[in-house]
Amino acid sequence: MYKFMDDENGERQPAATDTAQTGEGLILMKNIWKTYQMGVEELHALRDVSFSVNKGEYLAIIGPSGSGKSTLMNLIGCLDSPTKGDYWINGNLVSTMTDDELARIRNKEIGFVFQTFNLLARATALHNVELPLIYAGMGSGERYEKAQAALASVELGDRVGHKPNELSGGQRQRVAIARALVNHPSILLADEPTGALDSKTSVEIMALFEKLHAEGNTIIIVTHEHEVAERAHRVITIRDGRIENDEKIK
C-alpha cells in the first residue's frame, strides 16, 4: 500500500522548502546532537555537528576510538535518529519521517557496509544481494539479473551460490558491498569496512571503493587507518563528538 504512495520521490512535503537550504547537497546536517542518558549522567556522543556532502564526493571520517564516528554514520544511514538537530538527505528532512519512510530511504538511497559484514548466515551470496531488491518489491526475474550483475561487479560472479561461511573475509565484504550497491543508492556508507580484514585484503577492498567512486558513486567511509583516509578526497576528523577538522585533500 505505502509502496504505492511514496514510489517516486515526487510528493514528499518538506522537499520543496528544504531544497533551498541544501543546494546541490546530497546530505546536510545542521546542529546535530546525539545524547545517551546513562543513569543521571548525560553522554554526548555527538555535539553540535554540522556539515554537508555533495554528490560524487569521497569522504573519510577519522578520529580516535569512542569519538562518535559510528554514531554519526548510523545517523547518516537513518539507522538511528538524532537527539537534536536537523538532517536532510536528497532534500528530504529525515527527522519528520515515519518508520516506513525511513525504511524506504535505507532501501533506496543508502547502501551500508558494516565492519562485521552483517550478511544473513543461512542465505547464499545471491540471496543476500537480492534482499534489498525484495524489499524494494522487485519481481524475481529482474532481481536475479541485478543481483548477478552486482556480484559480478565485485568479481564474485563465480561464488553466487556460496553461503557466508563458505567465503573468505574479503569475499564476504565484497558480497556486502554488492548488496549495498544493488539498488543504486545515492550514497554508499562504510563503517570501518576493512577493520576485520588483513592488510592485503584491505587493499583490495579499498581499490574497489576507488573504482566505485570513479564510476560516480558518492562514498563516506569511517576508518582508523591513515592509509585508508588518504585515498579519500576529503577528510573529516572527529574528536569528542565534535568536528575538529574538515579538509579537502584532492
Binding site: 505505502y2 539507522l79 550478511l119 524489499y135 524494494a136
Partner: peptide
C-alpha cells in the same frame, strides 16, 4: 540487518 537494508515493519 533486514531493517538496515530496507525492510519495513510490515
Amino acid at each position: 540487518i533486514r531493517k538496515a537494508i530496507g525492510a519495513r515493519q510490515g
